[in-house]
């Protein structure tokens, strides 16, 4: 199991109602169903992922997250999860508002654009960073709204969002003690647990 999913798993109460927004092949929900008896749904737009979810016994609903969240009732889930999708949204700020409307709390993960490698790439090569972890070029990337940890935390302050827990990991989703010395420089992926 992906290490970030491992961390998320520990933040989810057994038996709760979970919505996984951008659920991929349903790995997290499948695991939560098996081990935590959560009832949940994934939202997904990719056809192959949707088929994989159905094969995995995960409830999946085909939906465009940018436009489709409004039909979901307020406060209808205990936890809403969104992993590695925030940066691909048209309006991440409005999406975060929506996630917190639907769920009592929300877990988001996103890549840190303030990581030293991204900074170095831009500073020394003068070009938008391309890496194994984020392999796209600027014109074809689905990731249209990159931010740093600091940017995200400013948004939380501005919107009165309370950060319950946060952690940072490297691009293989591993914890490294030294990351925490300077997370915005050394951490590649942020995992936030937020509420209002």
């Amino acid at each position: 199991m992906r290490a970030d999913l491992e961390i998320i798993r520990n933040w989810i109460e057994p038996g709760s109602r979970v919505l996984d927004v951008g659920c991929g092949d349903g790995e997290l929900l499948h695991h939560l169903q098996q081990h935590k008896e959560v009832s949940g749904y994934g939202l997904e737009i990719n056809a192959d992922n949707i088929t994989a979810c159905i094969e995995n016994g995960v409830n999946v609903i085909e939906k465009d997250i940018d436009t489709g969240l409004s039909s979901i009732k307020s406060n209808s889930f205990d936890t809403v999860v969104m992993t590695q999708a925030l940066q691909a949204m048209h309006r991440p700020d409005q999406i975060v508002d929506e996630l917190l409307r639907i769920g009592k709390e929300c877990i988001v993960t996103f890549p840190n654009f303030g990581h030293w490698r991204a900074r170095g790439y831009l500073a020394f090569r003068g070009k938008m960073p391309v890496s194994k972890f984020l392999p796209y070029t600027w014109y074809n990337t689905p990731n249209i709204h990159f931010c740093t940890f600091k940017d995200f935390e400013s948004l939380c302050v501005e919107r009165n969002i309370y950060i319950m827990e946060r952690t940072v990991v490297d691009n293989e989703h591993r914890h490294r003690w030294w990351i925490h010395l300077w997370p915005n420089m050394l951490g590649e992926i942020a995992i936030y647990r937020i509420t209002r």
Binding site: S39, I54, I61, S71, S76
Partner: peptide, 19 residues
């Protein structure tokens, strides 16, 4: 069909939906 799906989610039923 989305209306059926949304109602099933609201009712807490196990449902998948494809378009």
């Amino acid at each position: 069909s989305r209306a059926i799906t949304d109602a099933l989610v609201e009712a807490g039923k196990q449902v998948s939906y494809a378009e």
